[in-house]
Amino acid sequence: MELRSINLISKHKFAKLLRSKIYWVFFIVGLGMLLMTIIPFLVAEDFRNESGPMLLIIISTFTKSYTFFGVFASVTIGSLVLIQDIRDGTIFPYLAKPVSRSAFIFGKIIGAFKLMIIFWIFQVIYFMILLYTVTDYGLTINLVLAFIYDLLLYFMLIVATALFSIFLHPVWASIIVLITFFLPQIAKQMIHTDWGFWTNLARVIWFIGPEYDVLNNWGNIIGSTLIYDTSQFQKLLYFVTLLLLFLVPTFYVFTKRNLTPKD
């Protein structure tokens, strides 16, 4: 019964998000960002026949669109997943049916995730076309793992923003999740400063968190033949830790909190 409800709710949420304007804004801007990936290939005549440099150029521009397309879209969609239904009052007739709150939350999040899967498939296909067209590199296991990791990352970002947005304004929830996501990278920029406590804090964060040099990670993944990749493992560990620290209690609190139309 619960699985059936989750499936129904996720289909419904997917259809609802597909009709939201913000989705299409991201889709069009994200498409533009992806198409920009081709520009270096067109202008960098010197490297056109050299597979190595061309690969780095492609990765460099692709990861820019990846950050925008994936991370920002996940966070924005996540911020609409649950609170949208509470604010517009649509949650009440639905929750009056024999559906538990947990099933409701899972259904909504999975519905949003389905949307990101479409983004992701589009992204992967486009990258593979570029890869095979302009370089000598092919698909490696690490590349596959990197793409799967992206998908997991999208899921976690949706969950995190969705749950934070229950307690905070969706904009603040999105900002907090984005800062958390980029925190190790910000910390990396601060470790050589001389700001006392803040520098030490940055060093601790940088030490604990994964290194978010996406360009290097992607370069290592494609260039390496190793299946196990430390940076991917670190990233995953970082988000699993976040999940345990913040999201599980937040999920628990949501199922226990009062829902009123004024929310």
Partner: peptide, 28 residues
């Protein structure tokens, strides 16, 4: 149990028949 709240909204993209189908399916 059937419930009608005092203040409610349904998703704007839904058509009348689809709404009933969704709500009926949710009810099992």
């Amino acid at each position: 149990v059937g419930f009608l709240p005092e203040l409610f909204e349904f998703d704007k993209f839904l058509k009348g028949k689809k709404l009933l189908k969704y709500m009926g399916n949710l009810a099992g």
